[in-house]
Amino acid sequence: MSSSIASSSSSSSSSSKKEKKISLKTSDGEVFEVEEPVAMQLEIVRSFFADNEDVTEQTVMPLPNVSTAAMHGILEYCRAHEEFRRRMPEAAPEEEVRAFEAGYVDRKSNEELKEMILAANYLNISKLLDFLTGVAAKRIENKSVEYVRAFFGVENDFTPEEEANLRREYEWAFEGVDED
C-alpha cells in the first residue's frame, strides 16, 4: 500500500511541483486536502504524522472535534501565515500580519469566534489560539456580567442571594462597566 504517487490530487491543478498534501476529515465528513506546511501548523496533525510510522500519504486523518465551518476559518489563517513565512522567512511583515488579522477577525461573529477557539485548542495551534482568545477578551472588555454570560453561553447557576453577596463583595470591581 506504500507505493503511491500522489494521493487524491485531482482537486488541485497547480501540482507542477507536486506539492505534498495531507487529507483531513472534519466532523461532518468533509475531506480537506491541505498543503503539508500549512497542515503542519496544526500540532495535532504534526505529531500524528511524526508519531505514527504506518501512516502514508493516503491516510485521511479524522478530526472529529472540528466542524467544516471552523476548518475553513482555521485554514484561511494558517495559509495566510504560511504565505507570510514563505515571502519573508526571516521576520514576518508585522504590519501586513496585523492588517490581515484585523480583517480576518472582523468578519467573524461571536459564535464563529468561539467555534474557532474550540477548534484551535483541539488542533493545538498555539499562535492562533493566542490570537483568538485575545480577540474574545477584547470583545468582553468592560462588559457587564450579563453580557459576558450571553457571550459565552454560560448559565447563571448562582442563587439570587449568592450572586448578590458576591457582587456586594466585589462592588468596587463594577465601577466603569460599559452599558450593554
Binding site: L118, V145, A173
Partner: peptide, 28 residues
C-alpha cells in the same frame, strides 16, 4: 459552545484582577 476551562483560563489570564473579580459573579 461552552469553552472548556483550560481555554477560559487562556482568556482570563489576559485580564487584570478587577475584571477577574467581576467574572467570579458569572457562574459557579
Amino acid at each position: 459552545f461552552l469553552l472548556p476551562d483550560d481555554v477560559m483560563i487562556h482568556i482570563f489570564l489576559r485580564f487584570p484582577v478587577k475584571n477577574l473579580a467581576q467574572f467570579r459573579c458569572v457562574c459557579k
